[in-house]
Design a protein around this nucleic acid. Structure first.
Length: 419
RNA sequence: GCGGAUGUAGCUCAGUUGGCUAGAGCACCUGGUUGUGGCCCAGGGGGUCGUGAGUUCAAGCCUCAUCAUUCGCCCCA
């Protein structure tokens, strides 16, 4: 009987993010704090776990996310809790609970961290994934829509990400969308069901709006004359949409008016947008968001409007250049003097340099190889002679020159390197 | 939830119609040379071929199952 323990593995869809991922994530978060901070956004750190009904109420009980993608389970007290599948609902809850959205106040908030959805993993889609999320509460004005989009584009520019397409649409409001839904359904009934693809036949009943963005060429041909949202929204929504477009155009933002853009979360209305990359596989939506007037009230808060977006950090990372790793200042090779190597390394670090010392047994040659691999600028050599004389040999790894140095002079040497 | 592909060394992969001790490159270790690292040379360690069963004289290769990974669909960031 084999008693060898099997190696334990990570949970499916949950990834370990080593470098370069971790470094790219840090850069994204730092950039977010700086750029969003310039627009008045404050950071909020949210819990990962919420009561399950927050999401069914906010996202919509009929959505795919709520129906089949949430990690929901009873806690030890028997209450249903959910690992958050998105951030907006939690931000709304936090603002209401802490009185941050009083009638006259305006809140601009961002957060970042892991989200959880039980989906089949593929490129650009993990079960634990990470988002940066911004929400602006309290402004109905189209300037708010334009500003948050400008901020998002600013942020991406700072990360060096270009060549994204901005899709823009209006989804109407709670007053005009039902009428549009009826018009679309009526149109779909005029088509013969056999001509639509299997997915669309189902969607025509369950979620007619979704039929609009089917990728099948045959379906798209049939839908050429379908009623479209921008032509059917109420005058208020139409004015709002026109104003947003004009503001973006004034700022030189090119966008692709996509009357078939629909979003899968029920709380969106009016402005909806997506930023899409064609360079990272099938899951090309890098950021998405829109307006959600009415959501706060629906969750028991004040009747304030809101607009926000989320961007997927893994997907952004796929578009970023890997940051070159910082080159260490030193490496200490000390084949028979690990203890001294440790001491000297501490001296150098406290003087402000970075680097490492070889502790493991190994020939000078193999430790020099390590020094070379570490890409350190200088190798400090502690061989037999140096140990006997209380010195250290400092070798410039690029120029292949070296000179001896008294150990007591190390702090001064380190200080020179800092300049 | 549905479909396709793939699991052979730490990594990237070869492995012909099943046939002796399973290979390469890179990486790693030891040594030589270089004034103590990079280049070069010599040597070396490391794989129960994802797992389990079946067919066969013989399975890395064929069959079935199972697990895992991956790319798509769906949906979303």
């Amino acid at each position: 009987m084999d008693t060898t323990p099997r190696a334990i593995r990570s949970v499916k869809g949950f990834a370990d993010l080593f470098e370069p991922w971790s470094a790219l994530f840090t850069r994204m978060e730092d950039t977010a704090r700086r750029v969003f901070g310039a627009y008045g956004y404050r950071e909020l750190r949210l819990p990962l776990l919420e009561y399950a009904d927050l999401f069914s109420r906010a996202i919509g009980a009929e959505t795919d996310v709520v129906q089949k993608e949430m990690f929901t389970f009873p806690d030890r007290g028997g209450r249903l809790v959910t690992l958050r599948p998105e951030a907006t609902a939690g931000i709304m809850r936090a603002c209401i609970e802490n009185g941050l959205c009083g009638r006259e106040s305006l809140s601009r908030i961002f957060t970042c961290g892991p989200m959880f959805r039980y989906e089949r993993p593929q490129k650009g889609r993990m079960r634990q994934f990470h988002q940066i999320d911004c929400e602006c509460l309290g402004l109905v004005e189209p300037q708010a829509d334009a500003e948050i989009l400008l901020m998002l584009l600013h942020f991406l520019r700072e990360l060096g990400i270009r060549d994204l397409v901005l899709d823009l649409n209006t989804l109407g409001c709670r007053l005009c969308r039902p009428a549009y839904g009826r018009a679309l359904t009526a149109f779909l009934l005029t088509l013969s069901p056999e001509d639509l693809c299997e997915n669309c036949r189902r969607r025509a009943r369950t979620n007619p709006l979704r039929v609009l963005d089917c990728k099948e060429a045959a379906c798209q041909a049939l839908l050429r004359d379908a009623p479209l949202l921008p032509d059917h929204v109420c005058p208020d929504c139409a004015d709002h949409f026109a104003a947003v477009r004009a503001l973006l155009e004034n700022q030189g933002v090119a966008c692709n008016l996509n009357p078939r853009l629909v979003r899968g979360l029920d709380y969106y209305n009016r402005t909806a947008f997506e930023l899409i990359s064609s360079a990272i596989g099938a899951q090309g939506a890098v950021a998405g968001g829109g307006r959600y007037d009415g959501l706060l009230a629906q969750l028991g808060g004040p009747d304030l409007p809101g607009i926000g977006f989320a961007c997927g950090m893994e997907r952004l990372a796929l578009l970023m250049d890997e940051a070159g790793r910082n080159r260490p200042d030193f490496f200490i090779a000390a084949p028979r003097a690990a203890g001294t190597a440790l001491e000297l390394a501490q001296v150098l670090r406290e003087a402000g340099l970075c680097g490492e010392a070889a502790f493991s047994a190994g020939s000078l040659k193999s430790q020099m190889r390590q020094a070379s691999r570490s890409r350190a600028r200088f190798c400090l050599i502690l061989g037999e002679e140096e140990l006997a004389q209380g010195t250290v040999t400092i070798r410039d790894m690029d120029k292949a020159t070296q000179h001896p140095l008294s150990r007591t002079d190390l702090p001064a040497w380190a200080a020179e390197r800092l300049v």
